[in-house]
Amino acid sequence: MSYLLKRFGFYLLTAWAAVTINFFVPRMIPGDPVQALITKQRGQMTSESVRSLYVLFGLDKDESLASQYFSYLGQLLRGDLGLSFTFFPTPVAEVIGDGLPWTVGLVGITTVIGFLLGTAAGAVVGWRRGTWADSLIPVTTFVSSIPYFWLGLVAIALLTGPGSFFPASGAYAIGLVPNWDWQFIGSTVQHALLPAFTILVSSVSGWILSMRNMMVTVSSDDYVTVAHAKGLPERRVMLAYAARNALLPNVSGFALALGFIVGGTLLVEIVFSYPGLGLQLFQAVGAKDYPLLQGIFLIITLSVLLANLLADVAYLALDPRTRREG
């Protein structure tokens, strides 16, 4: 248990670091973006929301940096991320609340599936080293060098269009109202297939490569040779001895790489106009919607931290050496 507690402490530290970055970064923005907004919206803003944006951007010149920092923290703890410029006057928290489920559903699920598929395939390729399986490596290297979003563009160009089963954009058919009936769920799945496929193809190849290398490395460990000497069936040697051990560094690699992966996968949403955080990020950059940008950064960071914690739990379950007795 002390292992998990330590990790949890580390994630708290990281969350604090992200919040602090988020506090300082807007202070680099030239000019007074809030004043510009007030002028544009001419009197539609309540004094309360103006105040919360001032805290967010650190425009309260008469307050000390420390007290600015604490009012910012206090505001965050209340769940107040400011108002979105693009979707004015919707609060950022609400905008993100709309996008998050789509992202979790698409990016979250496909990332995990991609890891599982890639790891399984990598285990086989690594085990069959020296056979035809080796010829997959150049292909996977090439594929894993392609940016996710570009693959999405190619997928749209090749697989969508008039009469195609795959829709080119959106998360569900226009005109449907989100609810839990079969028509809506069917439409959601249909819209998610192509973006999910794109993410899978690009992410799987990376996991194949890393798991393959782990398998090759682990296969020459003594206990694998012993397993062969015991005359165990090949499947058992491969799964229970080699792959089972090669999996460990791959799982910790997965946790570490999440921060890199989400960046790429979020962009797939842009290409497919999929209404998740990635698309919102794109819109926020275009519109210089700073509160929304920061809010998205915070939420993504927190989600990655949560995913890391889950990966830690998985690792704990997989590696008896991290478990402490008593």
């Binding site: 003594d222 012993v226 229970a240 051990n245």
Partner: peptide, 16 residues
């Protein structure tokens, strides 16, 4: 034919 390997320390699968 059974074998006890040199360096039996590493002969056991660490996760089982």
């Amino acid at each position: 034919i059974a074998i006890v390997f040199q360096g039996a320390i590493n002969s056991l699968n660490p996760v089982q």
